[in-house]
Design a protein around this nucleic acid. Structure first.
Length: 317
DNA sequence: AGCTACACCTGATAGC
DNA sequence: TGCTATCAGGTGTAGC
C-alpha cells in the first residue's frame, strides 16, 4: 500500500518525536514482523522472504532485536523510496553505523501514542521511548497483512548518503536531490519492457507503486504498455516531471487512504484518494476527456488508464 | 536480462 | 447463512 508519499508523511510525522529520543523498552509481539531482521552472528542467508519462521528462530530474532534496541539513542528519520529508517546514534557523537529499518509493505503503520493509550489493532512490535522535550511515548508498528517489517540494519555509504544495507540495492527516488535525471531517462529508453513495469522496478527508480505509476502515466499521457525504448527523451522527462508533480500533490494532501490501512503516525487518513484520475477508476469517465477509463492486468497487477488520452504510439518525441 | 509464477499474510466483498 | 473465489497500496526468490 504505502508508496513514497505515504512513507514520507510517516517519516515527517516521526521526526519531531523520535529524533533525540531514547528507547526505554521493546516488545516484539509477533516475530514474523522481524522478517528483515538478521540476528547478530546469524547466517544472513537463513530465514529470508517467503519462508515460514520457526518458533525457535522467531524467539532468537525477538530476543536479539529487543536486546540491541533497548537503550538506543535515536536520530532523525530518513527515507529512500519506500524504505524508512531511524539512525541509531552513538554516545560519542560519531556517525551512526546502525539503523532501525522499517518497510511498511502493504498494510504497515508506525503509530505514535501516549504511553497509556489503548491498543490499536494489529500491533506487532512496540517501542517505549523517552524524548527530552516530548516525554514518554509509545511507537507501535502495526501491520494487518505482515508484509512489512522492522529490522536493525547496518548503515553503509552510497556516495555521501548513509543507507541501510537492505535498502542499498534500490535506486534513489525522484525526490532525492541526488537523483540522476539523465541516467533515468537513458535507462528507461534502453528497456524493451512496458513503461509501467519499469516504473515499478525499484532498482530503476524507487518509491513508485501501483497507484502513482498509473497516475503519472495518466498525467504524461502514456499508455502503460508502451515499451521504454519507444519513449522519446522529451516524453521520458515529462514522465519524470509527472511523477514529481503527483508525489508533491499527494504529499500535500497527506497521502492516499482507501480505508484504515494507510494512516499517518497519529492514525489519521490522507485525502489524495479524492484526487485520483486513473487508479481504481476502471469504467468511469476520464476526468480529462470523458472517455471510459479502462482496467487491464499488467505483470499481474491492475493498471488503469484512459484509452483515448493514453494511446499506444509508434514513437513520441 | 527479462519475464512469470509464487511465496509471504489478512480481510473485504461478490456471487452462488 | 455459509461457502468459494477474487481482489488489495509490496517485495524477494526460483525457474524458464
Amino acid at each position: 500500500m504505502p508508496e513514497l508519499p505515504e512513507v514520507e508523511v510517516v517519516r515527517a510525522g516521526l521526526a519531531p518525536a523520535v529524533a533525540g529520543a531514547r528507547v526505554v523498552a521493546v516488545s516484539v509481539v509477533d516475530a514474523r514482523s522481524l522478517k528483515r531482521h538478521v540476528p547478530e552472528g546469524a547466517d544472513p542467508g537463513t530465514g529470508g522472504h517467503g519462508v515460514t519462521l520457526s518458533p525457535e528462530a522467531g524467539a532468537v530474532r525477538s530476543a536479539d532485536f529487543e536486546r540491541r534496541l533497548t537503550g538506543a539513542l535515536l536520530g532523525a528519520p530518513a527515507r529512500r523510496g519506500k524504505f524508512l529508517w531511524i539512525p541509531i546514534t552513538g554516545a560519542d557523537g560519531a556517525a551512526p553505523r546502525e539503523s532501525l529499518l522499517a518497510h511498511l509493505g502493504m498494510s504497515g503503520q508506525l503509530l505514535l501514542r501516549a504511553h497509556e493509550a489503548s491498543d490499536d489493532r494489529f500491533v506487532r512490535i512496540r517501542l517505549w521511548i523517552e524524548h527530552p522535550e516530548h516525554g514518554e511515548l509509545r511507537l507501535d508498528f502495526a501491520d494487518q497483512r505482515r508484509f512489512g517489517s522492522l529490522a536493525l540494519d547496518a548503515l553503509q555509504l552510497d556516495g555521501e548518503s548513509p543507507v541501510p544495507s537492505q535498502a542499498a540495492h534500490i535506486a534513489r527516488d525522484p525526490l532525492d536531490p541526488a537523483f540522476d535525471d539523465r541516467g533515468f531517462v537513458t535507462a528507461l529508453r534502453s528497456r524493451r519492457t512496458a513503461v509501467k513495469r519499469a516504473l515499478l522496478d525499484q532498482t530503476l527508480i524507487s518509491g513508485v507503486g501501483n497507484i502513482y505509476a498509473d497516475e503519472a502515466l495518466w498525467r504524461a499521457r502514456l499508455h502503460p504498455e508502451t515499451p521504454g525504448e519507444r519513449i522519446g527523451p522529451g516524453r521520458a522527462r515529462d514522465l519524470l516531471a509527472a511523477l514529481r508533480a503527483v508525489f508533491a500533490q499527494a504529499l500535500a494532501e497527506g497521502g492516499t487512504s482507501f480505508d484504515e490501512q494507510y494512516v499517518n503516525v497519529n492514525g489519521q487518513a490522507g485525502y489524495f484518494a479524492h484526487s485520483l484520475n486513473a487508479y481504481g477508476r476502471g469504467g468511469e469517465p476520464c476526468p480529462r476527456c470523458g472517455a471510459p477509463t479502462r482496467r487491464i492486468v499488467l505483470g499481474g497487477r491492475s493498471s488503469h488508464f484512459c484509452p483515448r488520452c493514453q494511446r499506444r504510439r509508434k514513437f513520441s518525441r
